[in-house]
Design a binder for these strands. Structure first.
Lengths: 136, 136
DNA sequence: GTTTACTCTATTAAGTTGATGGGGTAATTA
DNA sequence: TAATTACCCCATCAACTTAATAGAGTAAAC
């Protein structure tokens, strides 16, 4: 299940990418237009800023804005920040690898074998889609 | 994140499919060999039986056994029983469709657009893998 | 120097997961 | 037919995560 955090984050990014000019947009405006709890959105935008996707401007006329071109923003990067690992089990994760605590041997694990294929399929989608591809 | 329920279920199915003969295997044996809490495994095997993947035999010499050939058991079906919907949002689910409560219009939703591609990629994997493909 | 809007910390209700215990029941076997 | 075996079901519970909310603080613009 996709978390609301990711859902809201993607919607906010799309909202910003759809602006005619890349001027700061207030949190309140995004929250209202996309039906998002403003406070929750605040924390999401903050983490997107810290991750280098967004810039922010304080004071009157302030808000958030995209720092890169939409077509330069890969879904792999966005998903990893918002949703976490793309892999469904840590033992097949590229960026968050961990040995499964209950599994003695990955080499002969059926779950590992299947989830490796799932991971590759998902990566393929996320690598070939940018924020620009999400705009309708 | 893949739930332990699914993980354990897949491991149990693989264990059964790896048997030389398709005779009943006791829960305790599977649990011990696969490092699974026996009680938890009980409930998982029960739901797999109710879904038509497994048969069970009571009394001495009883246990669980596969009802179909491993290559006839599609991962799409197994995943839907164990993990639930394959789609990450209900609005792109084939078998569990629901309108997203917070989204006024799927047709212009960026999340919908992306998750549709993700769903198709995952379906492609699950449809083209059977239990037989998981055996090492 | 006041306003605006971002930034941070903390709290909390609700839901889910994974594990466990205990009792009951059906089917084998002797 | 009685005892045994192993499935079957119900209830509980701690731990964790998610999503939402509140409130105080801070930096920048006018």
């Amino acid at each position: 299940m996709l978390s609301k955090k990711t859902k809201y984050g993607l919607k906010a990014l799309t909202y910003l990418a759809s602006q005619k000019e890349n001027t700061p947009v207030q949190i309140a405006e995004i929250a209202e237009n996309e039906n998002i709890s403003q406070k929750f959105l605040e924390s999401i935008l903050l983490s997107l800023r810290k991750s280098g996707f967004l810039g922010s401007k304080k004071g009157k006329g302030g808000g958030y804005y995209l720092i890169k071109e939409p077509k330069e923003i890969l879904m792999t990067d966005v998903m990893r920040i918002l949703e976490g690992p793309i892999a469904m089990v840590p033992c097949v994760s590229l960026n968050f690898y961990e040995k499964c605590d209950d599994c003695p041997n990955e080499a002969v694990c059926s779950v590992n074998k299947l989830m490796l294929k799932v991971r590759d399929a998902n990566l393929d989608v996320y690598r070939n889609n940018t924020l620009a591809d999400l705009i309708i």
